[in-house]
Amino acid sequence: MGQITNSFLEAFKLIFSFDPELIEILYLSFEITIIAVLISSFIGIPLGTVLACTRFYFRKAIISIFFALMGLPPVVVGLFVYLIFSRSGTLGWMGLLYSPTVMIIAQIILITPIICCLTFQTIESAHLKYREFFQSFHIGRLKAVNAYIIDSRFELITVILAGFGRSISEVGAIIIVGGNIDHLTRVMTTAIALETSKGNLSLAMGLGIILLLIAVFVNVAMIFVKNKFLNPSNQDL
């Protein structure tokens, strides 16, 4: 028990010390996660919508593949991205290995399938519900899709938050491609891994508590935004 109490103390000490190194690590964690989540949303949400509302050959196969990709082990993604961006790899000439950019790329590979599949499910259920209704009024497909997205915006925010949660807590892939370099590619999760390997368990746990608190804060903020600005009762559609 002593260590757990210590780690809470350590967390509060860290928070109130405003340690510049901690702020740097936090900043990078959020920069990488937010950019990765936004790019993944821009890919995943349209892709999921297209898969939900259209019919074409191999559609079911593609959907199954995306669902399988949701369970991608991060370490495998890390290795894959490493081999591509390594100096001896296909894109090695870009010199991106061990940079935040390549960490974002690994994160995008990890979370795009999640966002795509969850969007697919949300939009498909709206599509099945309203398809005949829209057809009977001769409303075009684009307008219908627009309506589906507006109708399921609550669920889509949850979808994005799921991606955020996966991304901010991820360590296996980004430690391989980022290298956990001090002041360059060190983020919260890789810092926790480093402190654990130094035997600094309460500091590692303290960092974990801070990560958790921030994740809770982000989720609460998103729910607040959702209820305040996206609630149908506040807004004309």
């Binding site: 390594s86 100096r87 001896s88 790899g89 090695g92 290995l97 061990y98």
Partner: peptide, 13 residues
């Protein structure tokens, strides 16, 4: 680890 470090260096990383 040293083994991994050497491997990475063989990839010019």
């Amino acid at each position: 680890g040293t083994g991994q470090a050497v491997k990475n260096a063989l990839n010019c990383d």
